[in-house]
Simulated scan of single mutants.
Amino acid sequence: MAIKDLNLSAKTTVDGFMNGINKSVIKGQGLEFSQYRSYQPGDDLRSLDWKMFARSDRYYIRESEVETNISIRFLVDASASMNHHDGDFTKIEYAKYLVASLAYLANLQGDAIGLYVFKDADLFAMAAKQDYQHLSRLFFQLEQLKPAGSFTQPIHYKALFTGAQKRELLVFVTDVYQSNAEIFDLLDTLNSLRHEIVVFHLLARNEVELDFKGYTTFEDLETGATVQIDQVKARKHYQENLNRFLEETRMKMLDRKIYYRTLITDQALDQALRDFLKQRNKLSI
């Protein structure tokens, strides 16, 4: 994250991570031989291996390995609460680097990528497409992101229903800050599309530990409301409530069959990349 250029940062992160990692494959018609299997009624006769038939007098299908291509939509919460900072970085900056790295990785594997930004009660939509120019446009849009306002209202969700009818991978990056269950309303909407969903829940180290270096007045970034807190006295009760909230959130995600991962903004992106590849491969098979 010390590299300010998203394109270069994403390439540096992914190239380092992918060193030694095999690309994902599925069985199908391709160029690289994988294995034989017995012929089944309905199989494409062009896949029959006639040399194997001549040797064994039995019909075999020649299977090969092919790369899988899917459509991936990145959904970014850019409401004002994503301006929360810990040290030199805000949550939205971490989200930018995370999405840029995942998008670069997806593009590297030939996947179509799209970007949807939830900000200031509106929705910015960039339909999924596969080419390097599209990836550059996605980087540009990420670089322009400045969190503002409250989370997007359901009336603007129409763009989420456009596009291909096949199953997609939806990657949602958010701090799960909500006032009226709007995050879970969105997830219920996404679930109705029957896509695979991954939620990366961003937390800052200072909010996990309630350690804000002597501050006593705290402001809600979305409503402007303030509260006085003695951090030392409040810390134990606060962390109990936070742990309860995180467990309840995890269970709600599990009930919706959504893959859920908390990320602290001082952590490297490696685990997020592994989780992303795991879910991408799951959808491809």
Score class of each variant (00 low, 15 high):
Lys4Asp: 15
Lys4Gly: 01
Leu6Val: 02
Leu6Trp: 11
Leu8Val: 08
Ser9Phe: 10
Thr12Glu: 15
Thr13Asp: 08
Asp15Met: 12
Asn19Phe: 12
Gly20His: 06
Ile21Met: 13
Lys23Ser: 13
Ser24Tyr: 10
Val25Thr: 10
Ile26Met: 04
Ile26Gln: 11
Ile26Leu: 05
Lys27His: 04
Gln29Gly: 03
Gln29Tyr: 11
Gly30Ile: 02
Pro41Cys: 02
Ser47Ala: 13
Ser47Thr: 10
Asp49Lys: 08
Asp49Ala: 03
Phe53His: 13
Arg58Ser: 12
Ile61Leu: 09
Glu63Cys: 07
Ser64Glu: 15
Val66Lys: 15
Glu67Asp: 12
Glu67Thr: 03
Asn69Trp: 00
Ser71Asp: 13
Arg73Lys: 08
Val76Gly: 03
Val76Trp: 06
Asp77Pro: 05
Ser81Ala: 10
Asn83Ala: 07
His85Ser: 13
Asp86Arg: 02
Asp86Trp: 11
Asp88Asn: 10
Phe89Val: 04
Phe89Gln: 10
Thr90Gln: 14
Thr90Arg: 11
Lys91Asp: 07
Ile92His: 09
Tyr94Met: 03
Tyr94Leu: 01
Tyr97Cys: 01
Val99Gly: 03
Leu102Glu: 11
Ala103Phe: 03
Tyr104Lys: 01
Leu105Cys: 08
Leu108Phe: 14
Leu108Trp: 14
Ile113Phe: 08
Leu115Asn: 08
Tyr116Thr: 06
Tyr116Cys: 07
Tyr116Lys: 01
Ala121Asp: 14
Asp122Ser: 14
Leu123Thr: 06
Phe124His: 05
Ala125His: 14
Met126Trp: 11
Met126Ile: 01
Gln130Thr: 03
Tyr132Gln: 10
His134Arg: 05
Leu135Lys: 03
Ser136Thr: 02
Leu142Trp: 12
Leu142Asp: 11
Lys146Val: 12
Gln153Ile: 08
Pro154Asn: 06
Ile155Gly: 08
Ile155Lys: 15
Lys158Ser: 14
Ala159Glu: 15
Phe161Pro: 00
Gly163Ile: 04
Ala164Cys: 02
Gln165Arg: 15
Gln165Ala: 13
Leu169Met: 07
Leu169Ser: 08
Phe172Thr: 00
Phe172Gly: 00
Val173Glu: 10
Asp175Met: 08
Val176Gly: 07
Glu182Asn: 03
Glu182Leu: 01
Leu187Lys: 01
Thr189Lys: 00
Asn191Ala: 06
His195Trp: 06
Phe200Ser: 02
Leu202Gly: 00
Ala204Thr: 15
Arg205Gln: 09
Asn206Asp: 13
Asn206Ser: 05
Val208Pro: 00
Glu209Asp: 12
Glu209Leu: 09
Gly214Trp: 10
Glu222Thr: 06
Thr223Asp: 14
Thr223Lys: 12
Thr223Glu: 15
Ala225Cys: 04
Ala225His: 14
Val227His: 11
Gln231Asn: 07
Ala234Leu: 05
Gln239Gly: 08
Glu240Trp: 10
Asn243Thr: 07
Arg244His: 12
Glu247Gln: 14
Glu248Gly: 05
Arg250Ala: 06
Lys252Tyr: 09
Lys252Arg: 15
Lys257Ala: 10
Tyr260Asp: 00
Arg261Trp: 04
Thr262Ala: 09
Gln267Thr: 08
Ala272Ser: 12
Leu273Thr: 05
Arg280Thr: 00
Lys282Ile: 00
Ser284Pro: 03
Ser284Tyr: 04
Ile285Leu: 04
